[in-house]
Design a protein around this nucleic acid. Structure first.
Lengths: 212, 212
DNA sequence: TAGATTGTTAATCGATTAACAATC
DNA sequence: TAGATTGTTAATCGATTAACAATC
């Protein structure tokens, strides 16, 4: 399992979505050029990215779509599904529980926890919701090591630490908090602020140019 | 208004959060070294990033925190608040409507639209929710040119086009759809799939290493 | 066969890190 | 003053793009 550049990893799901679309449209093969045209990624870049997945294409024809799809899925380990759990069943948490695509991306949420579950013992989108006090016990029993963090900011650090205590090795962090955890913990942040920063600046630049 | 590298822009909000924290703790000045230590960004990188904001520090002392904060806010145009609107009041949309930090980041949602508002004419977190049919009219009347897109995937492209027709210049896209729009439209995607790709791969690599 | 496409090697570009002089 | 810190210039690193040979 060789190292793949992070920026390549981030582009792979973009290609994947496109490939599913092509497949639905009945296409059998596709060229790197074609993928490049539809994704704003340079043709050569697409080739390099695909090379990382290990696929080999057919000169003059392109790549077999089914082959590409399974190569990318394998690369991302999206072909077999990992169990995970979610903490913080507010609006964002509920949105994620209802996000059915997740299972097509290798993640199945098998339990959710909340400090004050509206309906304890209930199910939401087929996922059981428990009170926080059940977490330590259940985590060790279920052997899940991926946690999704959707709590309010105030609780984020503490809950993250509880996750670790329960044996978690990776946290998908939807809070704006920079978690302070041992460096062997895998953390991926969904960072709205960074994205908004880029948006705001671009808008401001556009306005500037107009008025000047 | 000079160009700032995108990666610098994305780091600025991280520094900003930290600076607020220092300010609340009563500190007056801070060194780039200190910021670097708390953010996993290299010391020199922090210096360069701060230089882009135009602040000048004091040798042996560091940077005045209030000065840094307002320099960064100005850079991101987060000091004056832009109006925006939101389309798609599902769980994710509701989460954003309730995300009060937004106004501290230069964005105020002044209206929301949904195909089937549960409670039409109602307010959620102080924001009025309208039916989609009201959008064209209201957009031109309110002169908002930033739209937040939280619809289901199927509707994303069409709603985005309606946004443009209503005079929008920037779209903050929370759907996984790659919007196909004129290239002068400013688009920022919150891309969960890319983030999940990195997480999945890292977890898979970790597992590999353990079993081998 | 000729043209389109692949995959690789080399060149460019941009971002990060290192080195160091300037200074309160 | 000496030490800590700034800000800048040079060196490195990694990612993107260009060029081109190989091939169905």
């Amino acid at each position: 399992m060789n190292a793949i550049p992070i920026l390549t990893l981030k582009r792979l799901p973009v290609y994947l979505d496109l490939l599913y679309k092509y497949q639905r449209a009945g296409m059998k093969t596709v060229s790197a050029t074609r993928i490049a045209d539809s994704t704003d990624v340079h043709m050569t870049q697409v080739r390099k990215d695909l090379a990382f997945t290990g696929v080999v294409g057919i000169p003059k024809v392109g790549h077999r779509i089914t082959e590409l799809i399974s190569a990318i899925e394998q690369c991302l380990n999206w072909n077999d599904v990992s169990s995970c759990f979610l903490v913080g069943v507010g609006h964002l948490g509920k949105a994620l529980l209802g996000y059915s695509e997740l299972s097509r991306k290798g993640l199945r949420i098998i339990a959710a926890f909340d400090l004050h579950p509206e309906t304890t013992g209930e199910y939401l989108h087929g996922v059981p919701i428990y009170g926080m006090e059940k977490m330590p016990n259940l985590l060790s029993r279920l052997h899940v090591h991926i946690g999704i963090l959707c709590t309010p900011s105030e609780a984020a650090q503490e809950v993250a630490e509880q996750m670790l205590a329960g044996g978690v090795i990776a946290i998908w962090n939807f809070t704006p908090v920079k978690l302070d955890l041992p460096e062997d913990v895998i953390i991926e942040n969904i960072d709205m602020s960074s994205s908004l920063a880029v948006l705001s600046r671009r808008v401001a630049e556009r306005m500037m140019r107009k008025t000047s």
